[in-house]
Structure formats: structure tokens, C-alpha cells
Amino acid sequence: MTRRATMLAVAIMVGGLIALDLAASVPPNPFKAPPLLALGSGQASGGAHCAALPPGR
């Protein structure tokens, strides 16, 4: 067996994840998207990061 099978599995895994996510999530609105760059936008950083503390801590 070659990596053709595993790479196909990865492609299906990621493609399936995105398809299921789009089906289950609120539809995105590109007209309410944040500015291209966070730096200089004047907006507070709102993303989620692995270093972030749990809420209320």
C-alpha cells in the first residue's frame, strides 16, 4: 500500500470536516468581516488562542 490511500483519507477528512461545519454553522457574512489587518484596525483582538486563560480566571 502507498501513501495514495492515506493522502486520500486526509483529503476526505478535511473536506468532510469543512462540509459538515458549513452545514451546521451560522452562514458567514463577508460584509461584516473584520478589516484585512488587525494591526491598525483599532479593533480589539477577538480571536481564540491556545494560551488564553479559561473565562473568569
Partner: peptide
């Protein structure tokens, strides 16, 4: 969780 992962940075 509510929004699509295509708007999540990581």
C-alpha cells in the same frame, strides 16, 4: 462553535 471554522484563526 456557532460560527464556521473558516472564520477561526487557528
Amino acid at each position: 462553535v456557532r460560527e464556521t471554522i473558516l472564520t477561526d484563526v487557528t
